[in-house]
Structure formats: structure tokens, C-alpha cells
Design a protein around this nucleic acid. Structure first.
Lengths: 228, 228
DNA sequence: CAACTATTCAATTGTATGCTTGAATACTTG
DNA sequence: CAAGTATTCAAGCATACAATTGAATAGTTG
């Protein structure tokens, strides 16, 4: 009621919320969240994918766990980490979209790496959905096979980027191709589209990634990935 | 294309996004964002409302501006700060809702201060909207008059908490009363409801605050606040 | 144009964070 | 139960951040 205790209450309350903010205050941790949005993963796997030492990855993961953004469970010899909640991805999405809209450097960085981001319009989730219903597109999931296995857009074919070149033969040129990967800043789809277009396919990238599809509560298919 | 430059790209990209995360990594700054979600404000005003020194508030505001979460403009003798974008409030909302859902301490802190949060069910935005259409409720905006003036729920009456006691006479007891303020953790509405109920009114708090109403793109009314 | 004022800057201090290294822990598997 | 392995812990260092203080700036107003 009195001013002092009200101040203490607010301080403590916002301090608690800031725990989440602190967890989001490192690029490394954001990258971990993006990778965890695809599927659950071990510490070693995350360390490898982010070029961090295992100890460092472990430490970052514990910060994320401290903020309740991820959960971990022991599975045999490994500790597997997962996003704690669909809302965690929603938070990352909100941060991502705000950054894309307001931080000019972000567009600049993306441009400097994937030059034809602007020249080739990306396909939106809704457009892809319509195309899938009409059967007018081939959808390629170019992420590693394990990520496809953990969840993918129904009807998508798994062709990890690394295998694309040697599996071109099996791809028809009669329909348009839409390639997707982890998210709007994942470059796997960009590289797949570049390769396909250079060989004569009509190929486009999906604007966003699989977790964004899932976040819209569109249907999701899971599968043991055959041949691995 | 090669591994090194791809790593540099990702590092730089996520580092840029982390600028926003860093801005959210302080309770003080989150409190500033919540206050700015009500209306634009001067540095001095924000310092006073958060019990910070002016220099400290200024410093925090510059961190927020560096992350492009707020804009500032010079107005006469004052510098006025505003939220840069409706998406900034959306980001704070996402963080807030995640924290409420997952950080147990938050519920504990709220409970310790506003004891009857749990016993009295709060009215949702949608319920209030229906009630307003039917004309079955009186809506009170118990924030300071300037915040009401900058934007409020259409049909709401401005009775700042400080004035409530002496303006009880004008309030009918025939209809239910819904009081709202800045957001779900703002205690003005709680105190208003407690006072009203102790005097025999059927009063409830709105679950969320005015910025949440606005974020739903429900209609908003602005007015010069008469008598101030 | 001189006095005034809101805001920002600069310098300082204590504390927190990120990363590395090497050891410890806890679990599995032969 | 011994050897092996994924993960975490602990210590140490460099850097970054929060808050305070006092001065500087830029603008307004008499």
C-alpha cells in the first residue's frame, strides 16, 4: 500500500521478467533457441552446430533453463534440451520480426550474405498452403534429415541441402518448387533455390521456416527418416 | 558459402537480434516500456514514476533507443519518449505472458502484494467488450488523468485512484463496475476494486490494461482531460 | 542576452557476464 | 565393477553493465 513497499513490489516483479530478457541478451543463446525450435537436441549437437565449446554451450543452456525457456531431460548417456513452451518460439518470433522491421543493420547483414533475397520474392506460408491444396507445387525440406524426421510440412520431401546436387535427377520440372528450412534467416533454402534455378527449375524459398508453420497450428507430419 | 563466412554471418545476425534482448535485460527498462505503452512521456516524468534519478533514467532510455524500441523527439524544453512501434508492446506482451506462465516466482510476487488476485476472477477483454455493448457495466479508468486523456476504452469514465474515495457519491450501484489501469501487474485497479467492494459495489478488475485493449485493435477514444 | 532548466555526457565504482581450461560428476556399457 | 563418455562444475580473466556524481549542453524565457 505505502510507497516503499509498492516500489519493492514493482522492482521485484520487473526483475523477474528481466530474467527472460537477460536470457535473450546473447546472440549465442538466440541461435540455440532457433536450433531447439526445430527439435530437441543434445549439448554436443548444439555446440557443434553453433561452433561453441561444449562447456560454453552447456553454460548458455543453463542460463536458458534458469529463465525457464528450455527444459532438459536425461536420455541415456545424453542430456536432451527442448524449448519449454510454444510461447518461447512466439517470443523469439516477436523479437525477430521487430528486429527485422526496425534494425536497419539486420537487413544489411542479410543482404551482404544472401544477395538475391530481394530480387526473388519469397513464398508466404499462406501461399504455400494454397499451392499444396491445389497440388501445384513440390515442397522440399532441405534441413538435415533428423530435423525433417522430428516434424515437417505434410507432403514435403526431405532432400537435405548436402544431398541436393546428387538427387536433382529425381525432380520434375513441370511444377514449381518451394524450398524451406529452419527460418527466415536460415540460408539452406537460399542455397537450394540458387542451385535449382541455375539448373533450370522454377524454385522459390519459403519466407519463414518449419517452426513458423507449426506456430500457426498448421498440420505437421512426423516420420522416422528412412535410409539413415 | 564456406564455413567461416557462414559462421561470421550467423554471429553478426544473432548479435544484432541480441541488441533487442539486451534492452529487455533490465527490470528498470521493462518498467519504462510499460509506462511508455500508456503515452509518451518526458525523462523527468519517467524518472519520477520509477523512482530513478533523472540521469539513470536517461541512460536507460538511451539503451532502449539504441535498440530502436523507443523514439524521442524534442518538444519545447522537454524530450519526449514514445514506444517506437506497436510491435514493441507486442514483444513485451509475449515476454510478460511467458513469464507469467512459466516463472513461478512471478505468481508468488504478485500474490504477496495483491492478495485477492486469485479469489476475484478478473474480467477478460472480450467479456468487457460484450458488457459494454449491452450497457450492463460501468467502466472506470483509474489511471492518472493524463493517461486517460492520451487514450482510453470508449465509454470509460476517468476516476484516478487518488480521487476515487471522494467521487464515490457519483457512482451507481445498480450496475457492475469494471476498473482497469496500465496492465495486468498494475495495482491501481486492484486497489480501486478493493475500495469499491468494501463499500458495497460489485466491482471487478479488467484482467489486462489499456495497452492490451489497444493492441487488439479495439476502438480507442482520446480526449483532452477536462478540469486539469 | 542572461538566467534558467531539462537532458545528456563523462568519469568512477562495484558487480555481473562470457569464455577458456581442466577437473569432477553421473551415467552407460562391456 | 571398471572403463568410457556426455555433461557440468569451478576458477580465473577480460569485458560489459548499472548506478552515482558532478559538469556540460542545448534549448527556452524573461
Amino acid at each position: 500500500m505505502n510507497g516503499t513497499s509498492r516500489r519493492a513490489f514493482k522492482d521485484e516483479l520487473f526483475r523477474q521478467f528481466a530474467r527472460i530478457g537477460k536470457a535473450l541478451a546473447s546472440g549465442r543463446r538466440l541461435e540455440l533457441l532457433e536450433l531447439l525450435a526445430q527439435k530437441e537436441r543434445t549439448v554436443e549437437e548444439l555446440a557443434r552446430l553453433t561452433d561453441m565449446s561444449v562447456a560454453n554451450a552447456s553454460q548458455h543452456l543453463q542460463v536458458l533453463r534458469g529463465a525457464r525457456l528450455v527444459d532438459s531431460r536425461k536420455d541415456g548417456l545424453y542430456v536432451k534440451y527442448t524449448l519449454a513452451d510454444q510461447r518461447v518460439f512466439g517470443l523469439w518470433q516477436a523479437l525477430r520480426d521487430l528486429g527485422e522491421g526496425r534494425i536497419a543493420e539486420i537487413e544489411r547483414v542479410v543482404h551482404s550474405f544472401a544477395m538475391d533475397r530481394k530480387s526473388l520474392r519469397a513464398v508466404t506460408l499462406d501461399e504455400l498452403r494454397r499451392g499444396l491444396r491445389k497440388g501445384s507445387v513440390i515442397v522440399l525440406d532441405v534441413r538435415p534429415a533428423e530435423e525433417y524426421g522430428a516434424g515437417h510440412i505434410p507432403g514435403a520431401r526431405s532432400i537435405p541441402l548436402a544431398e541436393l546436387r546428387r538427387r536433382l535427377r529425381g525432380l520434375s520440372k513441370t511444377r514449381e518448387i518451394v524450398a524451406y528450412c529452419r527460418g527466415p534467416y536460415c540460408v539452406l533454402a537460399d542455397e537450394a533455390v540458387a542451385l535449382l534455378r541455375s539448373r533450370g527449375w522454377r524454385a522459390f524459398r519459403l519466407e519463414e521456416g518449419f517452426p513458423d508453420w507449426k506456430a500457426r497450428w498448421f498440420p505437421v507430419e512426423t516420420a522416422q527418416y528412412p535410409g539413415k
